[in-house]
């Protein structure tokens, strides 16, 4: 049996789990290619126009897989932490994909509540049963997958640059090189080091978020807000770059919260959609770097934000 796994959305963070789990169950795992022009165009063609770019690209990945596998995995990630969601579009992702694309093979669409091992295992069990495996085989594969996921570390923490910036945003916007036009490399080439949220401990992130009036109910609010505030307060970085896709509902809130929390800190928002021109992005990053440089080395006592 060929199991297809789309390389979109949170694949960048949780691929060891998915690939190991289905591999250990004896399925032939087929992962879609890295995002490229064809996948990108297919995604835009089939998805509803209001959706954000990462969701459109996910459609492209599923479209790529549809003739190549017997079963496609569409992870419906409901919660990664208790009482926290990712975004309504994640909860309804299978519905979006199944209704927007035609001729799809059967799909695994069971909700994933990764709030505890037990909840996650119930997803694994349902998926394993679809492949016709018994509970013992599923348990073994599940444990190996968890092990692989634990050993997998993502995140960037560059050393040896004179300017360091915090790169925040949803992981799929940061790590998808095609979507963000190789932003990480661009920033590095301009002589700026990057730090991402993975290097800040969960409890520190949570502590920052606890200062909010309302308990955040999106995982990425806690992560991005906590990370941005913490790294600015502890002077770990000189500026913050936020990569956000156009029309992202959660980002419209997170960005405001960060702006409120850090009224006087260099903060660049890069909006990305299917029409984004690379030259515009380059100019903005270069200008941001120039500003940081002046702020740090020439006129550090004057707020460049006015």
């Amino acid at each position: 049996m060929k199991v297809g796994i789309p390389k979109g959305l949170l694949y960048c963070k949780y691929h060891p789990f998915l690939v190991t789990f289905f591999g250990e169950l004896g399925a032939e795992v087929i992962v879609s290619e890295d995002t490229n022009k064809n996948i990108f165009d297919a995604g835009i063609k089939y998805c509803v126009d209001d959706a954000c770019l990462p969701v459109k690209i996910f459609h492209g990945h599923v479209n790529f897989l549809k003739d190549k596998c017997d079963l496609v995995v569409i992870p419906r990630i409901m919660q990664l932490w208790k009482n926290e969601y990712i975004c309504p579009k994640f909860c309804g992702l299978p519905e979006m994909v199944l209704n927007n694309l035609n001729g799809l093979p059967p799909a695994i669409t069971d909700p994933i509540y990764a709030t505890s091992w037990k909840n996650l295992y119930s997803w694994a069990q349902k998926s394993g049963n679809l492949l016709g495996k018994n509970n013992r085989q599923i348990k073994v594969a599940f444990n190996k997958a968890i092990e692989a996921q634990k050993n997998h570390k993502t995140g960037i923490d560059d050393e040896g640059y004179e300017i360091k910036i915090a790169l925040t945003g949803h992981p799929y916007n940061i790590y998808d090189k095609f979507l963000n036009m190789n932003l990480v490399k661009k920033i590095n080439n301009l002589g700026m080091g990057i730090r991402t949220a993975e290097f800040t401990q969960e409890d520190i992130l949570a502590r920052e978020a606890d200062n909010l009036y309302k308990r955040p109910f999106w995982t990425f609010v806690r992560e991005n807000y906590g990370f941005a505030l913490n790294s600015a307060k502890e002077k770990k970085v000189d500026g913050i770059i936020y990569v956000s896709s156009f029309n992202c509902g959660t980002d419209s809130v997170i960005i405001e919260l960060i702006k409120n929390g850090l009224p006087d800190f260099p903060f660049l928002i890069l909006k990305i959609d299917e029409h984004t021109g690379e030259a515009g992005i380059n100019t903005r990053i270069e200008a941001f770097r120039d500003m940081l440089e002046r702020r740090l080395f020439n006129e550090s006592h004057i707020s460049t934000l006015g």
Binding site: V48, D50, P88, G92, M96, N99, G249
Partner: peptide, 16 residues
């Protein structure tokens, strides 16, 4: 309203 996340999902389903 533009960008309403839940309604984008239902908009995908309504054609079906």
């Amino acid at each position: 309203p533009l960008g309403c996340m839940p309604e984008i999902v239902s908009k995908s389903i309504l054609p079906a």
